[in-house]
Amino acid sequence: MRKATQYNLFTDLFLLTFTVTRSRILTTEIPHHLAGLRLDQALAVLFPDFSRARLQTWIKDGHALLDGIQVAPRQKLLGGERVELRAEADAAVECEAEAIPLTVVHADESIFVIDKPAGLVVHPAAGHPAGTLQNALLHLDPALAAIPRCGIVHRLDKDTSGLLVVARTLEAHKSLVDQLKDRSVNREYLALVQGMVTAGATVDEPIGRHPADRKRFAVRPDGRESVTHYRVEERFLHHTLLRVRLETGRTHQIRVHMAHLHHPLVGDPVYGGRARIPAAADPVLIDVLRGFRRQALHAARLGLIHPEKGGEMAWESPLPPDFDALLRLLRSLG
């Protein structure tokens, strides 16, 4: 496990209007085996670090010249032409940067790995215009304003703690998005659920919006493919600690799938219903279960291929104090 660095950035708040522009000139010659392709198709082959949509935009904006001339993305190629590409990322974020403390588990020129605390919203949205991870990241590194979604390529629910990765360059962003699409990012969670789970299994059930409550999600036949693998990590008298691995990454996926199995997460206010108090429960346990007002879910391990170096990397995050204290209490009760 890699040592985390705590960035104590105080609590003052200030407004930054980002005008960050990072660009570099890339030149190449169209190889003859790409003759007959469109310019945007050829550039997608020659510059795989950038998405096809971004390359098309750059071509239309005059940032990709063919033999010194601006052409359309659909321009057919003969082979041998010289391409000059100005790879540029314009700041697209005007936002309040907030000095929110962040635990940075890993940092290099390509990525940050953040250990997010429970209670921190990832993106600004209605009801949460500030005080989010995105605001904190913009304070940590203002240049993230030039990256889509400030480099955030996957998210954790507000009350889920643990690890997530942030891209610091366009190349890293594309690499991480591709890895998520290819399902090669290893995301493991610890989840404390209600009831006794006898053995591990896989839940392969599609998830979509709840038909009656648009803020919730549900297993439904017309939903998107959703696959969750889980195994038993530890058993208690009335609860089970699961180690869960995501194959897909739908909103609320673990919470929805566990509720579908009739083993909702402890403390889940949306999918768990009222706190389930075991019969003849110890008074201390009753108080703790009633006081645990978030889903008992922690992103404990994150593994990926480094976008620049290419090697496999992995990080682990210890359980936060509230989750750890709950498990200690359950163990003490036998």
Rank of each mutant, 00 (worst) to 15 (best):
I25H: 11
A64P: 01
G303F: 08
S184W: 00
R293Y: 00
A201D: 15
V270T: 15
E234P: 05
T103Q: 13
D213T: 02
T198E: 08
Q134F: 00
T57E: 14
D287F: 00
H32E: 13
L246N: 01
L43N: 04
K215W: 09
V20Y: 10
P307W: 15
R74F: 01
V177E: 03
H32Y: 12
V232F: 08
L65M: 12
I277N: 12
V105W: 04
A118N: 07
A296Y: 01
V219P: 13
E234I: 01
L144T: 05
F236I: 04
G303V: 14
A91W: 05
A299N: 09
I147Y: 00
V244N: 09
A167C: 14
G151T: 06
Y271M: 13
G151F: 02
A107K: 09
G127K: 04
T132R: 07
I69N: 07
T17H: 10
V197R: 02
F292L: 06
G195E: 05
V153M: 03
G119I: 02
D159T: 01
L319P: 12
T21M: 05
G68R: 14
V105C: 09
T228N: 01
H229I: 02
A199Y: 06
L102Y: 03
W315K: 03
L265I: 13
F18T: 06
L192T: 13
Q56P: 00
T240Y: 08
P117H: 10
K3G: 09
L329S: 11
P283Y: 01
V45L: 13
E84H: 05
A92V: 12
K174M: 05
I254S: 03
F14P: 01
S51H: 06
G68K: 14
S51C: 13
S51D: 04
Q75L: 03
L144I: 09
R149S: 08
L242A: 12
T103R: 15
G119K: 07
D141P: 00
V284D: 07
L77I: 13
R328K: 15
H257Y: 07
H123C: 03
V105L: 10
I152M: 03
A280V: 00
E308V: 12
H106P: 07
V165F: 03
F217W: 15
E88H: 02
V288G: 00
K174F: 03
D182G: 02
R216D: 05
A72G: 10
A99L: 04
L327T: 07
G311V: 04
A97P: 09
W315S: 07
G127R: 03
E225L: 11
E88L: 14
A218F: 10
R293D: 12
Y230M: 03
G291A: 12
L39N: 09
A296P: 08
G200L: 10
